[in-house]
Amino acid sequence: MRNSFLFMIFGALILFFASVFVVQEGQRGIVLRFGKVLRDADKKPLVYVPGLHLKIPLIEKVKTLDARIQTMDNQADRFVTKEKKDLIVDSYLKWRISDFSRYYLATGGGDVSQAEVLLKRKFSDRLRSEIGRLDVKDIVTDSRGKLTSDVRHALNTGTTDDETAKTSADDAIASAAALVEKETQGKQKVTVNPNSMAALGIAVVDVRIKQINLPTEVSDAIFQRMRAEREAVARRHRSQGQEEAEKLRATADYEVTRTLAEAERQARITRGEGDATAARLFADAFSKDPDFYSFIRSLRAYENSFNSTDVMILNPDSDFFRYMKAPKN
Rank of each mutant, 00 (worst) to 15 (best):
K63A: 13
R128D: 11
F320W: 01
P57V: 07
D171W: 07
D162K: 11
E183W: 00
T216Q: 11
Y323Q: 09
D40Y: 00
D135Y: 03
K166E: 13
Y323F: 15
A278M: 12
L299A: 09
I131K: 06
G109K: 12
D206E: 15
R268H: 13
I202W: 01
G186F: 01
L127H: 05
H53W: 15
S168N: 11
R121K: 10
S129G: 00
L93I: 07
L214S: 07
N307G: 03
R208H: 08
Q75M: 07
D206C: 01
R78Q: 09
Y92A: 08
A263P: 04
Q75P: 00
M197P: 03
T148S: 12
E83S: 12
D220W: 01
K85D: 03
R322V: 07
F100M: 10
F34R: 04
N315R: 15
F5Y: 12
N156M: 02
S4F: 13
R102N: 01
A234M: 08
I222E: 13
S149I: 07
D206R: 13
K247Q: 11
A18C: 13
D66T: 04
G132C: 04
I59Y: 12
D42I: 03
S308F: 10
N193D: 08
A176H: 01
S149C: 02
E229G: 03
D125R: 07
K85I: 05
T164W: 02
A267F: 12
L87C: 01
I209T: 02
D310E: 14
L119K: 01
S101A: 15
K288H: 13
L52D: 06
T216W: 03
K288Q: 14
G145E: 11
D171P: 04
V80L: 13
G158Y: 00
A115S: 09
L214D: 05
S318G: 08
K137D: 14
D162L: 12
S196Q: 02
I88M: 10
A263G: 05
D284H: 13
L118V: 04
V151P: 06
K189Y: 05
R121T: 09
L15I: 10
L54M: 15
A234L: 13
Y302M: 05
D171E: 14
S287C: 02
N304I: 11
T160G: 12
Y92C: 04
F7M: 15
V49T: 10
H53E: 05
R280M: 10
K122Q: 11
N3G: 06
Q185M: 10
R249L: 08
I173M: 06
I313A: 10
I296L: 15
G108Y: 02
G109R: 11
E183I: 00
T160F: 08
A177F: 09
K122D: 01
S196E: 05
P316L: 09
I97C: 02
I296W: 10
F10H: 04
V117M: 12
G158D: 03
F7V: 12
S129R: 11
K94H: 09
S305M: 15
L46M: 13
A169Y: 05
A252R: 13
P327H: 14
D310L: 12
F7I: 14
E231D: 10
